[in-house]
Amino acid sequence: MTGGPLASLGELERRVMECLWAAPDGLSAAQVRDQLPDRELALTTVHTLLTRLSQKGFVEYDDGRPRRFWATASQADHVAGVMHDVLGQADDRDAVLARFVGSVSPAEATLLRRLLGRRRASGPSSQIDESASGLVSGSDGADPGERPERG
């Protein structure tokens, strides 16, 4: 399935993180290597991956011999952080990432379902009901920003 010699750097980093997330007390580099799906990785490679991850702030380590590495935050925390940024309303969010569609109000949700429903009911080849299209697209009419309240 996954694995294989062509695993990308990002994929390897993710696998290392999954080992660490599963071990709250931390792991040594050798233990991480032994838990990785492809045990062919050299210990130095695992060390490099752990160092990169610590530079990015995902991993911390102590001064023990051998060093013990652990994840700075749980996987759930990281996911929550990403989702917060994706769903948030930051000024430049739209420049940072392009979201497929934002959330809509209950009124707009009703309007959207009606628009789709009319299309389905009238069938793909028949004429679109004037009143359905008039609700939103209309001819060249009012401000699109004011539409949902009317729906």
């Binding site: 809509v104 109000s105 628009l115 609700l135």
Partner: peptide, 22 residues
Amino acid sequence: AVPSGALAIHGGVTATRVARLV
């Protein structure tokens, strides 16, 4: 679905997008 107050910024565009596709 979010309460109406929260989407002052990106409100109407979704309906416009769906309408011009349909």
